[in-house]
Design a protein around this nucleic acid. Structure first.
Lengths: 196, 196
DNA sequence: CTCATCTTGAACTGATCGGTTCAAGATGAG
DNA sequence: CTCATCTTGAACCGATCAGTTCAAGATGAG
């Protein structure tokens, strides 16, 4: 515990995460990471591990951070499932609207690069998608949807959420992104209404 | 026209397209393209241009080939708009189910890599997404949906179609992919029914 | 002040990248 | 057969890549 102040690892991880998020794994060099974090190459290597390990930490960080937010948004699903689903999508839409964050989604980007990533990284990204599905299914079941409807609707909601990552990178406006989810929310509303 | 047979440019383009489709621009080297096409490095360079130009040709090829199929699928929209939408998604689902083709979608992959691609390539990919939207909106209008509904539903359909690219790479089964579009098709069916 | 600890910048390695050139070989028209 | 034309393999270039090492410098505890 001597020497200069230790740099803030959490801050560095955030910066690295955003760099990977914006440019993807392949298009992020160690120099990019050094520039983004403000840390030296050797500092990154010694305290954050090599590129693969660092990416994995960023992926976990991303999944945990937004996973918690998605969980919170869905927490009212038992009482108001439609509002819960709306809040769920709002997490994504607000993230996209935040000018301090990249468009798209780190998980979506990673999943798309699956064929050229290491097996462990690919598996972790798929896992994150699976968690999203599980989260949504549980919420829909809590909202008194029968198993079959909860299953397929959870898959649909997870997919539409991922589509926002693609469309935001295609230059789709926030109004159009909102329109995408509104169609889905209408479908959910009718299903909920019909099951009452 | 002397010398050995000229190799088939169309076949070579298909092979290059599939390589880019599977691995993306950044993760495709000239050696990869050489291996995929069976052509020599210098042959690629002399007759297909440099990496950027070749990628652009592949992107155009992809957009045209599947664009035509999507158009054909939507051609019955005036009479049977719901069947047209179903046929539209079937194009994508069949493409994903084809073991001879990569999962995902070249356009989706390219759009996701927008921040690190040349401006011209990024614009072309966005253009392709725009065409998809235009195509769908025209079909929905032909199916007697009013402008507002056609606009937002076209955006939704285009987005769900892109979501299939992401989800297919996440290991989602064909049954689940089908469930994703079925929710959307149900929503469309109700909208069409309500507008009658 | 002293010294153990941490950070930093710089350099090096071996590999791969995209792009380009060119001589050698293969081919078919005349 | 002759020769113009095309393809091919190999090599080279400058640049960048990830990974690693290490000496020099900065820092704060004792």
């Amino acid at each position: 515990m001597a020497g200069k102040k230790q740099f803030d690892i959490a801050t560095a991880l955030d910066a690295a995460m955003i760099q990977f998020w914006r440019a993807g794994y392949a298009d992020t060099s160690l120099d990019d990471l050094s520039r983004a974090t403000g840390l030296n190459r050797s500092s990154i290597y010694s305290s954050l591990g090599d590129k693969d390990a660092l990416f994995m930490r960023c992926l976990d960080r991303y999944a945990t951070r937004y996973g918690d937010k998605y969980d919170a948004a869905l927490s009212c699903a038992a009482d108001r499932p439609l509002a819960a689903a709306r809040a769920f999508f709002d997490i994504t839409l607000e993230r996209i609207a935040d000018p301090g964050l990249p468009d798209g989604c780190l998980v979506a980007q990673t999943v798309m690069a699956t064929p050229v990533l290491s097996a462990s990284v690919a598996a972790r990204a798929r896992e994150a998608i699976g968690f999203q599905h599980t989260r949504l299914r549980a919420a829909l079941k809590a909202g008194r949807l029968h198993d079959e409807a909860a299953e397929s609707l959870a898959t649909h909601l997870a997919a539409v959420n991922q589509s926002l990552a693609v469309m935001s990178r295609a230059g789709t406006s926030t109004e159009q992104l909102r329109a995408i989810v509104d169609v889905t929310l209408d479908a959910l509303a009718r299903t909920l209404g019909a099951s009452d």
